[in-house]
Design a protein around this nucleic acid. Structure first.
Lengths: 163, 163
DNA sequence: TTATTGCAGATAAAATTTATCCGTGATAAG
DNA sequence: CTTATCACGGATAAATTTTATCTGCAATAA
């Protein structure tokens, strides 16, 4: 039960894109360099985000990515589900219907297994908590908490690639 | 981000053990047969549960497993953490400290990354929800919901192996 | 037209999960 | 006190998933 670190990359990328001025975009290579992660693999994650309508693609030279929605309309859950897929992390194998004591074709198996129900409920709670954090919240907090020198450095770096 | 199905097996086994009369135990082979799952692999899971003090081992012939605690004192979280390990499912790589715009040795990195903090908070919510469901709750509900024929069949099967 | 960028699909390498086996120690029963 | 049954730890093997890269194609700005 481990979340891929591409999820972390994707969230950082989306947060960076969310802070960009309107109309400005960054390429996959830029994003990879900025975060110090391998470009080809990050590109895959960005393609997935693009397919799921979280980022918008600009083709051609000077192309790249922008956030496709308003930052207050993209949550951590959106990104996690895009990268990891939206399947439940707990899959019920219905083992209560296996083994020598199970009944054949019993109506009692129409209700979901109690164990699965409890696992799914916990996952829903997790998802709804993740959905509360929007990219706009992260940006606001970063502005408050981050070192001003870091902010400056970051802005300068972005301006160099986006004339 | 997928939970191993051995977690499902482990929960089912613990629930079954929790419903056993005091002093009665079931072997790994019995538990595997009852649930229709491979014996050697289930045995590994049971060993893990034993190491973590969730089940109690009875050695020798007619040996096997009992629940080590009261059913109202074992939660789904206990079992999940035992089988899956207690590491967080989200690992922060501190990628904010990588790349060309990061600062060296900045005090601003002493606070946890906001993204990691949000992910961890969601995981804590998930864990605390799982911790609410105790084996005793599952048993109570099963008694209410389950098909009486299934219950009978199950009891007969257990009595055959535990004179 | 050319160079740059994203995209889909194929492929390869690495890591993890899943599953089994064997030798050892414990112990109940004969 | 011998034997058969059981859990345990470690080693190992098979299968699957994750991670990572590459290639040819489409789009487009200069």
């Amino acid at each position: 039960m481990k979340i891929s670190n591409t999820v972390e990359w994707a969230i950082h990328c989306c947060t960076l894109l969310a802070g960009l001025p309107k109309g400005v975009n960054l390429s996959a290579k830029d994003l990879a360099e900025y975060h110090g992660v391998p470009h080809p693999y990050l590109a895959k994650a960005l393609q997935t985000l693009s397919n799921d309508g979280i980022v918008k693609t600009i083709s051609g030279p000077k192309g790249g990515y922008q956030l496709a929605k308003e930052p207050n309309n993209v949550s951590l859950l959106d990104i996690v589900l895009s990268i990891e897929g939206s399947d439940s992390c707990f899959e019920c194998e219905e083992i209560r219907q296996q083994g020598p004591t199970a009944l054949k074709r019993s109506a009692s198996y129409k209700r979901p297994c109690l164990i699965a129900a409890a696992m799914w409920k916990a996952e829903n709670v997790w998802r709804s908590e993740l959905d509360k954090t929007k990219l706009s919240h992260l940006i606001e907090q970063v502005i408050i908490e981050a070192d001003p020198r870091q902010m400056k450095k970051s802005q300068d770096w972005i301006e160099k690639r986006t004339p």
